[in-house]
Nucleic acid binder design. Structure first.
Length: 452
RNA sequence: CGGGGCGUAGCGCAGCCGGGUAGCGCAUCUGCUUUGGGAGCAGAGGGUCGGCGGUUCGAAUCCGCCCGCCCCGACCA
């Protein structure tokens, strides 16, 4: 087949033959936006995710991820991955389907109830779609780790989970199937487990901050996972489900330093409304903040709850065999997509923080039928691609109003507008989605602003 | 799981009470005009009315059963 017969697809192919990787042509892309609000969506993030073509429902609490939504999901996943790796955790991938036997060993097979999706294979073996992976990771650990010298160890994966919620709702914020990062720490003793816990605590603050979010860790019940040291991380959003009180110090944390005093951070005050007692609150009024939050992460220390019954032991320096001390650390990756939209949107649509935006730039060619406009736009595409700027190039024949409305709905941080006016004067318009400010610049200046 | 509601064209909805040839807006397709904020005109296509059964000469409409989805409550990354 001659090269010219191969469909170009959505990637741009510039005249010199290089395949462009950063720029996507809207006319060849798959972006099914909805002009009207779907009837089933109640909350703003769910409405916007459906309207902006991020997801499509398959069944109650189960979603298809369409191209734009999938890009965001991958961005979030990658930030989580990088911060886990930075914290010394090691990525693996455990299966979605697990044998029931492990759960019978840990004693959770009966405890977990109807939330766990139980299935049987063709040989009538009992299996389940994992709602979490403590048993699975303990099985990996116990078959290979025998000595305290191999500790500490932290294994994590980013995998789909299924919890058969009684009532899934709010789109991906409370789906039945969801993508979660779950990490599991193994230590020889409590002191080590506490260090592992604090290490994850800091990693979580860094992870959420990189996404443009303020995360408030609050002391939590440890629930069915068990244990006695637990924090849940709520990100602030005006539409959040719970009301939280917290020390303003959380907003000013310096997380970049190598020697962050994590233990001090774990003691900063934060509480959900139900547990907040104004009389006994240790934070002075001028430093107390009240806001709404959405839970996006939860960390637990639970000691030997799983290692003891499942026989995950190591031999210590004294020659004695002990069950390892464990913790587990979850981040709702798919939930974060909805949570970030709850935190960042306006009446026109989504306003993505740059680190998680599906594309950094929306390049609007107002007149694809005009040779000058198109030449200018395609030249800009090539330059943006060379600079590695992820760009969605709107080369469609829609009218200006429809193009702007779509771009504002999908919320890319930067809009570059090329029209007949600018094509004559050599200027393009650079517009910020966040504050709406627009400036007329030459192509060089645009590149500089976006890359400098 | 208890309570409430909804399933009619891709999306949003009307029609159902009082059974009688399935409609509207948007979207889609064709043509012409238009082109910096969701265009105009003309034409066209698209429906097992969620499913099964019943009543009836005749069912989107009445009755029964089932399925799916949404909302409110008790639980959750």
């Amino acid at each position: 087949m001659p090269l010219s017969a191969i469909p170009e697809g959505s990637r741009l192919r510039p005249p010199d033959g290089d395949v462009v990787m950063s720029v996507v042509r809207l006319s060849r892309y798959f972006l099914p936006v909805l002009r009207e609000d779907p009837a089933e969506a109640e909350i703003v993030s769910h409405r916007l995710m459906l309207r902006a073509g991020l997801i499509q429902q398959a069944a109650a609490g189960i979603y298809n991820w369409l191209p734009l939504g999938f890009r965001v999901l991958k961005k979030i996943e990658q930030i989580v991955r990088e911060e886990m790796d930075r914290a010394g955790a090691i990525e693996i991938l455990m299966p979605t389907i697990q044998p029931a036997q492990w759960w019978k060993e840990s004693g959770r097979y009966d405890d977990y109830g109807k939330e766990m999706l139980r299935i049987r294979d063709r040989h009538d073996r009992e299996m389940l779609y994992g709602p979490t992976n403590e048993e699975n990771v303990v099985d990996i650990f116990r078959r290979h780790v025998k000595s305290y010298r191999q500790l500490p160890l932290n294994l994590y994966h980013i995998q789909w989970k299924f919890r058969d919620e009684i009532r899934p709702r709010f789109g991906v914020m409370r789906g039945r199937e969801f993508l979660m990062k779950d990490a599991y720490s193994f230590d020889y003793d409590f002191a080590g487990a506490k260090r592992s816990y604090e290490n994850m605590f800091l990693a979580y603050l860094r992870t959420f901050r990189r996404m443009g979010l303020t995360a408030i860790p609050m002391v939590a019940e440890s629930g069915p996972i068990g244990g006695n040291m637990s924090h849940e991380f709520q990100i602030l959003a005006s539409t959040g489900e719970s009301v939280v009180y917290y020390d303003a110090a959380f907003e000013e944390l310096d997380l970049a330093a190598e020697d962050v005093e994590v233990e001090a951070l774990t003691r900063l005050y934060a509480a959900v409304e139900e547990k907040h007692d104004p009389e006994r609150c240790p934070v002075p009024a001028e430093r107390l903040r009240k806001a709404r939050g959405i839970e996006v992460g939860h960390i637990f220390y639970f000691g030997t709850k799983y290692s003891a019954p499942m026989g995950a032991t190591v031999t210590g320096p004294d020659g004695r065999e002990v069950a390892v001390e464990m913790g587990s650390y979850g981040i709702g990756v798919s939930r974060l997509v909805g949570a970030i939209i709850e935190a960042y949107h306006d009446e026109r649509g989504i306003v993505w923080p740059e680190p998680v935006a599906p594309f950094r730039v929306g390049l609007v060619n107002l007149r694809p039928d005009d040779a000058d406009c198109t030449a200018m736009a395609e030249a800009m595409c090539t330059r943006l691609d060379r600079a590695g700027v992820e760009t969605l190039y709107d080369d469609t024949q829609e009218r200006a109003g429809a193009k702007f409305a779509t771009m504002e709905l999908i919320g890319l941080p930067w809009l570059v507008v090329i029209g007949p006016r600018g094509a004559r004067s050599g200027l393009v318009e650079l517009r910020s989605r966040r504050d709406g400010t627009a400036t007329e610049l030459g192509p060089d200046a645009v590149l500089q602003r976006l890359c400098g």
